[in-house]
Simulated scan of single mutants.
Amino acid sequence: MTKPARKRLRREDWLAAAEAVLAEHGAEALKAEPLARHMQTTKGSFYWHFRDVPDLHAQLLTRWEAAATAATEAAIAEPGSAAARLRALAQALADPGPGRVTEAAIRAWAATDAAARDAVGRIDTARRAALQALLQETGISNPEMAQIIHAAALGMTLLDDTAAARRAAIGSLVDLVLALR
């Protein structure tokens, strides 16, 4: 009797598995052997797709940055007024959906890893710039407001509230800021 053919793993499969392992076990588990065990394959498959573990780390961070950038751009590209787009962006930050666990894990990783810290810094800078631009469109030029909305949205991702509760709360904060105009 022959064994069923195994599905050939792709780099994308490894990166998705690395995200899951990062979310569940933290950055210290992002090594070739534990990942291979998690995927029920050999380390050879890992090294077929990545030069080494730092290469995996770099690609994982690049993947996260691309997804975070796309989510920010999608929120600010929504139709409507600057106030509506500001609210949409703040709500997307407070409720990042399935990437919520990954973002929290990336931020925890950033506490001990310079490359992760740099990636988080770039995303945070871009998000605050987008928030600030939208605030300016509404007539609010105080840059601290962008920082306050960003910090509140990030904090909400740590709460065990429902997505709807997080979105409603950050929406109320945006409405309050807009009322200050």
Rank of each mutant, 00 (worst) to 15 (best):
R6Y: 11
Q40S: 02
L135C: 11
A77K: 09
L15H: 02
G121C: 15
A169N: 11
I148C: 05
D161C: 03
A74Y: 01
L30W: 13
E24P: 07
R37I: 15
P4H: 12
P54T: 01
A88T: 08
E137I: 14
A90T: 07
K3P: 08
M145G: 07
E78N: 02
L159E: 15
T42Y: 01
E33V: 10
A83E: 09
I123Q: 07
M1Y: 14
I149C: 06
T157Y: 01
Q59Y: 00
D113W: 14
L35A: 12
G99I: 04
W14C: 03
R11M: 08
R117C: 12
A66F: 12
R6G: 15
T41E: 07
A116T: 05
W48A: 12
H57I: 09
A153K: 00
A169Y: 14
A29S: 10
L93N: 01
A104W: 10
A77G: 07
A165I: 09
A77Q: 05
I76N: 05
R128P: 07
L86S: 12
R37P: 10
A104S: 02
K43A: 08
A70C: 01
Q147P: 04
Q136F: 05
M39F: 00
E28H: 14
F46W: 00
A126H: 10
G26W: 12
Q91V: 04
Q40E: 14
R181N: 05
A90N: 06
A77H: 12
P98Y: 00
A84M: 08
A16R: 09
